Amino acid sequence: MSAQAPLALLCLPCAGASASMYLRWRRLVPSWVRIVPVELPGRGARMGEAFVEDFDALVARICTEQAEAMRGDFALFGHSMGALLAHGVTRRLQSLYRPLPRALLVSGSAAPSRRDPERFDGGEDDASLIAELRKQGGTPEEVFASEELMRITLDTLRADRRVCRSHVHVGGGAPLPLPVHAFAGRQDDIEALAMAAWSKETGGTFTLDWFEGGHFFLRQHETAFLAALARRLPTPLHQAHFHAPLQAHQGQI
């Protein structure tokens, strides 16, 4: 598999979700990209495990568990909570003097320095969480219609809100020596300046691509988003004869 896809793209899920949100990307990205959906404890294939509700502890777990996938040519992607985790993993790798990703790609999340500390202070009762899911718009109707799926989703979202609440931004560190590429929805409630502040995290290239849509613009405009993602990914260091099957029209960005 690695001979066919020299760049591993580790994908971290948003709050309330599992690694399955990225499975379909495997057949939609260029052939030189190997999608590695990262499953967090307590969901999906790891549902029998306890949630990790502390940000730093979860970052440390990811760095340990994904050590094999983060050997060689790799990049990190995360959406919303996943973006914060991807950034946290990159910073931890840097502090441990481990190899860094070729690029950090973040979506639907304010930069760590611009996060609203009160964003996750709302209620964690079922009704409040369901209202949040409805507002964000990324949950299929089948989930709302199923008592079992709703319970799994709410329990996961509740744990992930605690992860986000426990995130503490530590300023003053050296910029990351790698490109940072951000993606955002024009109708999301994250301010443009909060997205642009990701530029402060890197001493290298920074880009910010905008799409029509809300918090889940990457689903609403999946084809255009994946085309933009592919353009931002670093070319594999040992690319030989790889041809991208993704012939996506650009759409509005």
Rank of each mutant, 00 (worst) to 15 (best):
F55S: 05
G48R: 08
R92W: 00
R114C: 14
G214Q: 08
M21E: 03
C164H: 05
S128Q: 13
R165K: 14
L9P: 10
G88W: 04
L193P: 04
R24W: 01
G213W: 04
F74G: 07
V36Q: 15
A127M: 02
Q4Y: 08
V59N: 08
S18P: 00
H241F: 04
P6D: 05
L105R: 07
T235D: 15
Q220Y: 08
R34T: 11
W25S: 11
A182M: 02
W210C: 06
A69Q: 12
V143L: 09
V143Y: 01
G42L: 06
G78K: 01
A15N: 09
R26P: 03
L23D: 09
L85D: 02
R92A: 04
Q252D: 06
E49T: 07
L193Q: 13
S166E: 06
G204D: 15
P179A: 06
A197C: 06
G72S: 11
G72T: 07
L104N: 01
Q136K: 13
P177S: 13
S199C: 13
L226C: 14
L178E: 01
M81Q: 00
E68N: 13
L76R: 02
L10I: 00
A248R: 09
H238Y: 10
V170T: 09
F77Y: 14
R115A: 01
L12A: 13
L237E: 13
G251W: 09
S166H: 05
G108L: 01
D116R: 05
